[in-house]
């Protein structure tokens, strides 16, 4: 990418292709996977701002995801507020929650911060279960009737297909990437990275640590909340474990760590790997592909074994993958590629 013209042109081409994709792909399954991919990118990128750039490794991002999802769904279900408006109420709610959480967690460092972030998310999950009047408790909120999206009197879409969700997801993913880019290249980004590298040194340089940490937190939380609202509306159902559970937090963090934290493309790369991979493992597409390629006979002993066990073992394989990545690519895929590139460069010299 030495040519300075090539980069933006390539970018615009990719964007155009992504935008136009639903015109050429009419498989809802493929679009659904793309939507999950966009959601994953937005989640990962939101966490990245706080975890990757500011170095505050929250394992409680489910709190923001869930509060956003719940606020939007509650407003839509009980007050018939359109989700594209409700999502902003969600952002407002989450900002308040984030500041409250920040005031508790930012007094703590390292492992204490991690544990506090988990505790707060768990408190919210348990509250969602117990505050049955507000959240409908463990039964969750089911709201599937979306009002048509209108500008003036013209109906833009009535959400009868996946295409509007696809475009909304794409917009959300692009927005989070753009905001991260903005953060990375601003004073805020430099301050955050200074805090990440050495909090005490940053403090002695006169950087108002607490203010910048809180800015990063609110930004990260607000974007996560949007992803949560998008999830709720798209799936049409939220309940405490699926949007506020600990595994949601871990999944969000995983996207970044697999891809590479504190880098603009890390969460994108992480999502590109994790989303298709977990789907392929889950639905046993791997066995199917092996059978189709003629490597294994479907009715042979190996074929039957794979069919029977691979779908049961997909979380196991996922766990193995996580362990391997941490041990052998501690800086994620981005770090791995960088290392490869620099080695090649050195060899070339």
């Amino acid at each position: 990418m030495a040519n300075p013209v090539l980069k933006p042109v390539a970018g615009i081409l990719v964007l155009g292709a992504l935008f136009a994709l639903p015109r050429f792909v009419d498989s809802p399954y493929a679009l659904h996977m793309m939507i999950l991919l966009f959601m994953s990118i937005s989640q990962g990128q939101s966490w990245n701002i706080l975890g990757g750039y500011a170095g505050q490794h929250s394992v409680g991002h489910a709190a923001y995801f869930g509060v956003g999802a719940y606020t939007t769904m509650m407003l839509m279900h009980a007050q018939q507020v359109a989700p594209w408006l409700g999502a902003w109420a969600g952002v407002g709610m989450v900002a308040v929650v984030a500041l409250a959480i920040g005031s508790i967690c930012f007094r703590l460092r390292g492992p204490y911060f991690v544990l506090a972030s988990i505790a707060v998310a768990e408190i919210l999950r348990l509250s969602a279960i117990n505050l049955t009047g507000l959240t409908n408790g463990a039964e969750g909120i089911l709201a599937t009737d979306l009002p048509p999206f209108k500008i003036g009197a013209t109906v833009i879409t009535d959400f009868s297909t996946k295409v509007p969700f696809y475009h909304a997801g794409l917009a959300l993913a692009l927005a989070t990437i753009t905001i991260t880019y903005g953060v990375q290249h601003s004073k805020l980004g430099y301050f955050l990275q200074a805090i990440r590298e050495d909090q005490d040194a940053a403090h002695s340089l006169g950087i108002p640590i607490s203010r910048y940490k809180n800015i990063a937190l609110v930004l990260s939380a607000a974007l996560t909340s949007l992803a949560g609202s998008f999830y709720g509306v798209y799936v049409g159902f939220v309940d405490p474990p699926t949007v506020l559970g600990l595994d949601v937090s871990v999944q969000i963090m995983l996207i970044c760590i697999i891809g590479g934290m504190g880098t603009l493309w890390g969460p994108v790369l992480g999502s590109l790997v994790l989303v298709p991979l977990s789907e392929a493992l889950r639905s046993n597409l791997i066995t199917e592909a092996l059978v189709k390629a003629g490597v294994v006979n479907a009715d042979s002993r190996t074929g039957l074994f794979l069919k029977e066990n691979l779908s049961h073992a997909h979380v196991l394989l996922y766990g193995v993958l996580v362990v391997l990545v941490i041990l052998f690519m501690p800086d994620g895929l981005m770090g791995f590629f960088r290392k490869l590139a620099s080695r090649r460069q050195r060899e070339a010299v």
Binding site: P28, Y29, H32, L36, Y231, V235, T242, R282, S283, S311
Partner: peptide, 22 residues
């Protein structure tokens, strides 16, 4: 055609999309 939804609604949806359209 077996699909594991791992108990998560969004994954259950993936499974249904796959079964219905693919």
């Amino acid at each position: 055609v077996w699909e594991d939804d791992t108990g998560k609604p969004q994954i259950s949806m993936s499974a249904m999309e796959k079964l219905a359209t693919r």
